[in-house]
């Protein structure tokens, strides 16, 4: 699938969110879309998935069957989990028994079996997100588009996401996934697209490029967030260790940690 010179803005006189984007992804490939909040990651994913139509340019060779997991599942609907998923399975073209089988299979696998009779508005954010994941997988997609798929998921299901991605890739599909939490470290073979200023650049690995290791001291309470941000920015976090001087009284958090990151290998 190719995005060829894609431009997009939401209003006629609004600013261009995407400007001349040229990217391609092939069967069996996964690309991670990185970038700061509001730069257009979700927009890029929605253009790729066929949710948004580019103002200029075109999307070529999009697979016929697309599964899209939105950043926020629309839980404000008057259906139970089972009724909604069965309805979406039929919308996706599955007949009665096949739809029931797919719904049963995915609700079991994603830990939704106990919620089958629960109405969507009553679900927690994480459980609703699982429903969003399930509806995208009811028919094996040729292109799976995941917009912040780890958001709100429990640890067990977070581990399941790379597994699902692998299954799509193994079946010859392609996967696009955005992430600002650094979870895509779980996808070691992924291509990395960085969105900034309306354009998309693909980070290419350069084995011969010199790598520098930068040590960053952060308050211990902020380690998780810092690691996530560094990973989202494309840096490789090598390890996190307690600060040797953390025995000394700290002015703010009382403890510190040092994050070692390799810089330069991915940019």
């Amino acid at each position: 699938m190719r995005l060829e010179n894609v431009w997009l803005r939401y209003h006629r006189r609004g600013p261009w969110v995407l400007r001349g984007v040229d990217v391609r992804i092939g069967p069996g490939e996964v690309a991670v879309v990185l970038g700061r909040n509001g730069v257009g990651k979700s927009t890029l994913l929605q253009v790729a998935g066929g949710v948004l139509r580019p103002g200029r340019g075109r999307v070529a060779d999009r697979p016929g069957r697309v599964g899209w997991v939105p950043e926020r599942f629309p839980a404000d609907q008057p259906f139970t989990v089972a009724r909604y998923l069965t309805g979406m399975a039929r919308v996706a073209g599955l007949d009665g028994p096949a739809a029931d089988e797919a719904v049963t299979g995915w609700t079991d696998r994603l830990g939704l079996a106990a919620f089958r009779a629960v109405r969507l508005p009553e679900l927690s954010k994480g459980t609703a997100q699982k429903v969003g994941l399930a509806q995208a997988m009811l028919r094996p997609p040729g292109l799976l588009v995941l917009d912040e798929p780890w958001e709100g998921l429990d640890a067990t299901t977070r581990e399941l996401v790379p597994e699902l991605i692998d299954e799509v890739l193994t079946a010859g599909g392609a996967v696009l996934v955005s992430d600002h939490r650094g979870e895509t470290v779980r996808l070691p073979g992924a291509r990395r697209w960085t969105v900034a200023d309306g354009t998309v650049t693909e980070e290419t690995s350069a084995p011969d490029e010199a790598i520098a290791v930068v040590e960053v001291a952060v308050p211990a309470a902020r380690v998780a967030g810092t690691v996530a941000r560094l990973r989202a920015d494309g840096h490789q976090v090598l390890r996190v260790r307690p600060d040797a001087s953390s025995n000394k009284p700290q002015a703010v958090d009382g403890a510190g940690a040092v994050v070692e990151q390799a810089a330069g290998e991915t940019r």
Binding site: Q46, G50, V51, W68, F73, P74, M88
Partner: peptide, 16 residues
Amino acid sequence: VEPDVQRRLAQVAVGV
């Protein structure tokens, strides 16, 4: 009645 995101999910499933 249909949420905007659900309408987009339907577009992805059956086409615009």
